[in-house]
Amino acid sequence: MVKEIGEDFFYNLKKAVEHAKNLINENTKLKLEIKKLKEELEARKDEITQSSHSECYKKINDLEEKNSEFNKRISELEEENKNFATKYVELESENNNLANLYVASFQLHSTLNFKEVVQIIMEIVINLIGAEVFVLYLLDEKTNELTPIATEGIEIEKTNSIKLGKGVVGRSAKTGENYFSELIPIYDEFNEDAPIACIPLKIKEHTIGVIAIYKLLMQKEQFTELDYELFTLLAGHAATAIFSSKLYTESERKLSTIQGFIELLTK
């Protein structure tokens, strides 16, 4: 009986040892498998990370490129905008200048009355140029003298006729060239021979008078680009306006004389 129990025990023990051995083998195999899988996973992980990183880098690069393109475009647009703004300011200023020139020219040719023409010239020099003291001289071709016919800021009695070619005003009239003093000196008292600007009034090359400016308004420090354009306009248009108004006045006078004479004859 004991023998049978012993044999069973050994048999079972043998079986158990075999089973244990099998389990150990299985376990070892599984461990190896896990290790393999882990290694594989590790390898794949690197691969996945690397590919997603490179994709990200590519996208970042693309976005950075686009960003720099946008920045470039923005700076180009800003530059364009600045250019447009500058152009706009220039056009505004040009527009203002043209308005001034148009009004001056329109006014100069708005009348054939000599006194009114002179008044308009004076107004242009005061209001559009900003002169405080100036004299309008007309050339007397018989005496070759420049005679003051209108003044501003100085009484006409305090001015004198100037011989053609004499002094700054006379020389400007003779040569027909504009004169501008390099510096605008502090105005102390009226000095006929110290103008800051002389503008000969000319019909083609024939000088008929001169505008001599001696002092600018206190708020006006120097001549501007527009002033030079106004001087050019005055040089031509004021001269023709003066000349035609003088001719018209003379012809009107002659006409009334002739009419009076005819009336006398026909009575």
């Binding site: 308005a99 009004v103 006014q107 308009i120 107004e123 242009i124 005061i126 209001n127 559009l128």
Partner: peptide
């Protein structure tokens, strides 16, 4: 001044 007036109106 008619000149100035015209300029302002303009």
């Amino acid at each position: 001044s008619p000149t100035m007036r015209q300029l302002i109106v303009f």
